[in-house]
Amino acid sequence: MSKQSGLGDNFYLHGYDVSGDINSIAVAGGPATLDTTGIDKSGHERIGGKRTGSMGGTCFFNPGTDRVHPRLSTLPTTDVIASYFRGTTLGNPAACQVSKQVNYDGQRGDDGAFTFTFDLQCNGFGVEWGRSLTAGVRTDTAATNGSSIDTAASAAFGAQAYLQAYAFTGTDVTVKIQDSADNSTFADVAGLSFTQLTAGRTAERIATANNATIRRYIRAVTTTTGGFSSLAFSVVIVKNEIAGQVF
């Protein structure tokens, strides 16, 4: 794969697509370092500590309904789930995190620009990079088997998944992750079915055991018992590449 720009990226915040209001975004993550420098050393020694991460950046002032200002200005004390999509092609890299919003600071420049900076700090889990199972925001009008992505091989290290649901009309819908060894016969992945939706916007993180087998091909599907006419949503899968992933 060749080098890419960040043109066409998307940013989703707990059931809202605020991409058009974001001027810049930064994604940071990894273990917090612990200083273990001995008195016999002339340089710092460090080891990895607890997993951490953040998403933050600059946004424009947009007080419109469902836009960024009504979302960030409330400074919620509850968790919010943030998702950064590197473009809107199925299978592209995407980063997600469960977050606490820690600020929303406005600046009015001498050129007349009115922007805000915001910072979302990971809570409970670190920032997680995975791949998109939807091409940006996907809209299903009935139960649908989405297109699959190829992860090259099966792995027995478990997975995590993130859902952003933006709009729903109907009685109920459930978003599930399925996998396959041959890209033909698919089955539900135990632990990767999101909570049934019956109304409104939402976001959710779910996970399997860290020794669960996730097969090569993966897709997002929608199912229903009572019917629905529209669901706008996005999904990210984080397929662990090493054994013993813990949080």
Results as ranks from 00 to 15, higher is better:
N92P: 12
H44T: 15
T208C: 06
R219D: 06
Y12S: 11
A220R: 00
C122P: 09
Q4Y: 12
R86S: 13
N103H: 05
T58F: 01
N210Q: 03
A143E: 09
A187H: 04
K41A: 12
A135R: 12
D35I: 06
Q97M: 15
Q4M: 08
R51A: 11
G146S: 00
E241W: 00
T115H: 12
S132Y: 05
G29K: 05
I214Y: 07
E241H: 05
Q121H: 13
A159G: 02
A207H: 06
G64E: 09
G226D: 02
N62Q: 14
D66N: 15
S193C: 07
Y12W: 15
I177Y: 00
T222N: 09
I242V: 11
K100R: 13
A232F: 00
G38A: 11
V246N: 08
T202R: 13
Y104K: 09
F168I: 04
A167D: 11
L75G: 00
H14N: 14
E45V: 09
V127G: 03
T65A: 13
K3I: 08
T78I: 06
E204Y: 00
P31H: 02
H14P: 08
A187L: 09
G8E: 01
A203G: 10
T202S: 15
Y217S: 01
S83L: 15
F118D: 07
G109D: 14
F233H: 15
L72T: 08
T174E: 02
V127F: 04
L120R: 02
S83E: 10
A203Q: 07
S148M: 02
D140V: 08
T36W: 06
P93H: 12
T78M: 07
S148K: 10
S42L: 09
L75Y: 02
G136I: 10
I81K: 03
G91L: 09
I25Q: 11
H14V: 03
F114K: 13
A113R: 14
T224H: 02
N23Y: 08
F233I: 00
D140G: 12
I22T: 10
D150H: 11
D35R: 08
I39V: 10
A212S: 15
S180T: 06
S42Y: 07
A232G: 04
Q121I: 15
A95G: 09
S73L: 08
N62Y: 11
G226M: 01
